[in-house]
């Protein structure tokens, strides 16, 4: 299950209650206290670890120094070590493929479904909502189910492919290094499609009918209407879906844990899994932190671009 990110801004700008009055109960400080409760917690359990992460990425941290507050600084050694490993190229490429393919497929399928369920027929809204069941299930269970579906010997996927004549041999989805990554992508697309669909449905619903009617009067056919009205009017929404898709895809961990554990031989390893692996399986915590720092930079850049762009729209 992934988490939506929002910059909803439906607040009126005038008539702000400036908390007035002397006591806390009447709030000069009430709003600030309420915000600081949350911010304080987040600073303690997100922001400080974030900073600590950066510090550790310049230190030598392993099982022996983990408890010590006075660890030797090693400069960029962790980064050098991480970037010079043989697996690094594969893992970076895997991450790019994983994100690119997942986002592209989720978006295409999600958009298609959103367009289909935009038509009015009995139960359309309810049926559309059912898709979210895939999103709400624990990632590890989704991974478990898919690893059974994709099982090499008795998996139903292989049976379906053979029965329809698409392949003649069984595909070893999870144990073939050149295919394992695509297995995770399939499961990840399954998880991500509903969210994409719902998000895009909201955008589609916001396009007024009369715009389409006007275009129809002007003689625009179905495809032409899609290209000249739907797509341009959905631009902001599509941008949001793509940014969120990248962010969520970079958060995906459970499916790797359940399906391939990054293997075989890093064939399906990605940065976010590798970082965990370095820290918790190889106990090269400094290196794990270095990978983590690099990826967090990527995630925050994507998120900041997205938030700023939506801010801009609201202001305009």
């Amino acid at each position: 299950m992934t988490v939506p990110l929002s910059t909803t801004d439906s607040m009126p700008t005038v008539g702000t209650i400036r908390a007035s009055g002397p006591s806390f109960r009447d709030g000069r400080g009430l709003d600030r206290v309420l915000v600081w409760l949350t911010l304080g917690f987040l600073v303690a359990f997100s922001a400080l670890p974030l900073v600590y992460n950066v510090v550790m990425s310049f230190q030598s941290v392993d099982l022996f120094t983990i408890a010590s507050f006075d660890r030797p600084f090693v400069g960029l050694d962790n980064y050098k070590a991480v970037l010079s490993q043989r697996a690094t190229g594969t893992i970076v490429r895997n991450t790019a493929v994983f994100v690119g393919l997942s986002v592209a497929l989720q978006l295409t399928i999600g958009f298609g479904l959103a367009l289909y369920f935009q038509q009015r027929f009995p139960g359309s809204t309810w049926l559309r909502g059912l898709f979210l069941a895939g999103w709400i299930m624990p990632g590890l269970v989704v991974g478990g189910v898919w690893s059974w579906i994709l099982a090499g010997d008795f998996g139903v996927m292989n049976w379906a492919l053979q029965a329809t004549g698409i392949t003649s041999d069984k595909i070893f989805w999870l144990s073939d290094p050149s295919i394992a990554l695509y297995s995770v992508i399939i499961a990840n697309v399954w998880v991500g499609v509903p969210f994409n669909m719902i998000l895009l449905s909201v955008g589609l619903a916001a396009i007024p009918d009369d715009v389409y009617e006007a275009a129809e009067m002007d003689g625009a056919g179905r495809i032409w209407r899609f290209l000249t009205i739907t797509l341009p009017l959905m631009r902001a929404q599509l941008g949001a879906v793509i940014s969120l898709g990248i962010i969520f895809t970079l958060q995906q961990f459970d499916l790797f844990a359940a399906l391939t554990q990054g293997g075989p031989s890093n064939g399906s390893n990605v940065m976010q899994y590798w970082s965990w692996e370095l820290s918790f399986q190889h106990y090269r915590i400094g290196q794990g932190a270095a990978v983590s720092v690099l990826m967090i930079l990527v995630v925050i850049c994507v998120a900041a671009i997205y938030v700023r762009s939506t801010r801009h729209e609201h202001a305009a």
Partner: peptide, 26 residues
């Protein structure tokens, strides 16, 4: 405040676990 909160929402667990593990253990 809102921007910082939004930014903390995108931090992947698998990347945050390393510093959280070390600091919690300390």
């Amino acid at each position: 405040a809102l921007f910082s909160i939004l930014m903390m929402q995108v931090l992947p667990s698998s990347l945050m676990i390393t510093p959280i593990f070390v600091s919690f253990s300390q």
